[in-house]
Design a protein around this nucleic acid. Structure first.
Lengths: 192, 192
DNA sequence: GTCTATAATAGGATAGAC
DNA sequence: GTCTATCCTATTATAGAC
């Protein structure tokens, strides 16, 4: 593999952006070629199985980012408030303050193949796990923390849908605030 | 217009189902032709501007359904509890108990043209308005009712995204329960 | 590892008969 | 109002030179 990992990562990043904006069916090879600066044939050199393999790589990357930027920080040492602030900052970057779609939502109902679908599921599962950890550390009971996490992730996904449809970012902002509230709630500092 | 309105409605319903399951780019003319039982040329007879016009018709229908089945009942006479129960029942039908995508979410980031996009925005706006009314009748302050409504609609949209990705319907069910809770909350029967 | 060129096919759309 | 036949373009994908 003469190509450096960094160069490959760069390619995947560009593909990531296209799939995120246009979805799977909406992203043509011409789009992907333009975004990466590579000819179609070069794309097939890197991804012999075509678009499905590109989507798989993009979702692998998404899962890796969630593990390192969300789940990792959620489980790290430090005060709950500090961890949550860091994570909210990461979301704001990922979603450009709530103005950019989520790759997971965009590909959630597309024909991306079984392997890519598994990456998608894992990324979502780890995201939920991270929020669940934060809620538990905020003193929420195990069952409620699990539900809070699932519901909060749904809320973010939906907020991004509303943004795409109407341009409004209020729902996204309030979702982020609801996460920040975890460090202010209930019987102060229950577990942390 | 020799075609009966009922027949046209039937066609739009079939198109509706295809766009809902496959999205705009994912729905090919072949898919739409198969689902309606009409040849491509017949589809163009009904919708001379092609797919965009079909999407527009489908979203007009979605807006009409929301007006008559959600916003209407929300503003109707009757106890808050009864109205909410009826509306939740309608959602459960629309989304097959949370197992079917929402046409509004599916088309929210697609290239559907300005007119169709306006129908989409109106459908969402009326949906939010309906929930806002319910929240107000449940005794929630105006500002909070507005936020509750936007956030709840986002939550439902996101719950359907999660369902598509993972098959889980818990988030959808809990969202419906959160609406039902409006008639159980706070200073009993504040406004209703 | 990237390119130009070229298939091969699917997709959107139209013409014209019935 | 629907059909068959056809068109044209975009799209996915491959071959082979550099």
């Amino acid at each position: 593999m003469p190509t450096t990992q960094a160069a490959k990562d760069e390619i995947v990043d560009r593909l990531f952006a296209v799939f995120r904006e246009r979805g799977f069916e909406g992203a043509s090879l011409a789009d992907l070629s333009r975004a990466t600066g590579l000819g179609k044939s070069s794309l097939y050199h890197h991804f012999p199985e075509g678009k499905e393999q590109m989507a798989k790589a993009v979702l692998e990357r998404a899962a890796a980012v969630i593990d390192s930027q969300i789940l990792g920080p959620a489980q790290a040492a430090g005060s709950l408030k500090t961890r949550i602030r860091k994570i909210v900052g990461t979301f704001d970057q990922m979603y450009a303050g709530g103005t950019t779609p989520c790759i997971l939502g965009q590909l959630s109902s597309a024909d991306i193949g079984a392997e890519a679908r598994q990456n998608l599921g894992q990324a979502l599962a780890h995201w939920i796990e991270a929020i669940e950890k934060l809620a538990r550390d905020g003193g929420v009971s195990p069952v409620k923390a699990r539900h809070f996490a699932e519901d909060w992730v749904a809320r973010v996904q939906g907020a991004l849908v509303l943004q795409a449809a109407t341009g409004e970012i209020g729902p996204y902002r309030r979702a982020m605030n609801a996460l920040l509230d975890l460090s202010k709630d209930s019987a102060a500092g229950a577990q942390d």
